[in-house]
Design a protein around this nucleic acid. Structure first.
Lengths: 225, 225
DNA sequence: CGTCTTTTTAACCAGTTGGTTAAATTTTTG
DNA sequence: CAAAAATTTAACCAACTGGTTAAAAAGACG
């Protein structure tokens, strides 16, 4: 009863004082790492507390329960990604320019947080609804996906890019961008390289992917030299 | 003490009478589904028993513990995949022929068991050693990966395929083949299609991928028409 | 029918885990 | 300094979970 009231007050204070410095963020970062490492059910609250350098009581002092903590971490994973995707695909530019901007943006983000896609896709497959009821439909404006698909079709009709199923094109682009961060252990075995060499490969990935896509998709321009 | 002995006898009997009909296989299939659905730590023995249509006692009657059951399921996932990969990449044929055989083979397998890659890659990232100490190094003969990488380099020198980092090529091929089975929930949202349409897309994927790769990689043959 | 294996029932247990609580202690802050 | 907030300590609990056990019941089989 009074518990709920105290919580409300506390939440207001917290969101107002944008200076959530150490402890709360330490916990969130620790939680992300532990959730990624062990999965949502494999993660232990004690482990999160240890990793954050605090104790379990304080953990529950800031975050009511495991589920809530997980949701926060999960939505955080999209808070950076989705808005960027929206702005890229709904903005100006040719199909190839948008693809290039997407590859660059997503790659930069994933190199900073390589464990994210495994975490996100894993939990998304476990509960797809969470994705739908999360950030995705809280974005302002219509999703740019339909618009972008039509744009692809138009450029195909105009002979700017090779004719193919637009969805296959998009699938290929996203696959080549994201999969290396998911299949790392297997790919390292197949490609016979260690973690260092793998990271170097990822660094050069943007150019590699774009050349590959352009060769596959771009038609030799007939008008100018 | 006598427990171990009984177990040994029981194992022999079991492996000899290759007629493990219903119950054992029912359990294994159920286990795979539950492990995929909930992850290794999220899976409950009771749930596996329920899904298999038997009870927990019988489950432990056939499989000592959760860990052993999981290992069986995990290795089963590779028992079909790895040998095929080995035979494709160590066999005869041009780079493009091998890529085509790989895409076709892996795609066929994944369409039958779409949940497998998420399961495998997930647990592989959690414990990469298991993969190394599993089927991979129990295969006869040297791994064909190094050989295939060299074959790619040779064909590039010979001007048969476009020059690029062979590892990037392999990475792209594998990404486009596997990722659609991992990113389904997200891709369905982005591509604005339902599960049925998505499955149709996957069916036509082999041709789509191969055309894409050929355009990206194949040089126009200079000698013949 | 009698024997052997499979399967069920049902109770039980020890360890783990998420979560609580209350008091003490420390840090911050006005 | 004094009040308030943050953090720790430590004990505790209910629920769940993997796993065991023993006896009974149901099938399979010669």
């Amino acid at each position: 009863m009074s518990n709920v009231h105290l919580l409300t007050i506390w939440l207001n204070v917290m969101s107002k004082s944008e200076l959530d410095l150490s402890s709360k963020e330490k916990i969130l970062n620790a939680a992300r790492r532990v959730f990624i490492r062990n999965g949502s059910s494999g993660a232990r609250m004690q482990e999160i507390a240890d990793e954050a350098g605090i104790n379990k009581a304080l953990l529950h002092y800031y975050f009511r329960n495991k589920e809530g903590l997980f949701d926060l971490v999960f939505n955080d994973a999209f808070s950076e990604f989705i808005p960027k995707i929206y702005s890229i695909f709904s903005g100006d530019g040719s199909v190839m320019e948008k693809i290039e901007r997407y590859v660059e943006t997503h790659l930069d983000l994933l190199i900073k947080k390589p464990d994210l896609p495994m975490f996100v896709l894993n939990e998304m497959q476990r509960d797809p609804e969470r994705f739908f009821s999360g950030i995705l439909n809280k974005m302002p404006g219509a999703p740019p996906f339909e618009f972008f698909l039509k744009q692809i079709e138009e450029e195909m009709k105009d002979g700017k890019i090779r004719t193919m199923n637009p969805r296959d094109l998009w699938m290929n682009v996203m696959s080549m961008t994201v999969f290396p961060f998911i299949g790392e252990p297997m790919l390292k075995k197949f490609l016979i390289i260690n973690s260092e060499e793998y990271r170097i490969l990822l660094t050069k990935r943007k150019e590699s992917i774009m050349i590959f896509i352009k060769q596959a998709v771009l038609l030799p321009t007939p008008n100018n030299a």
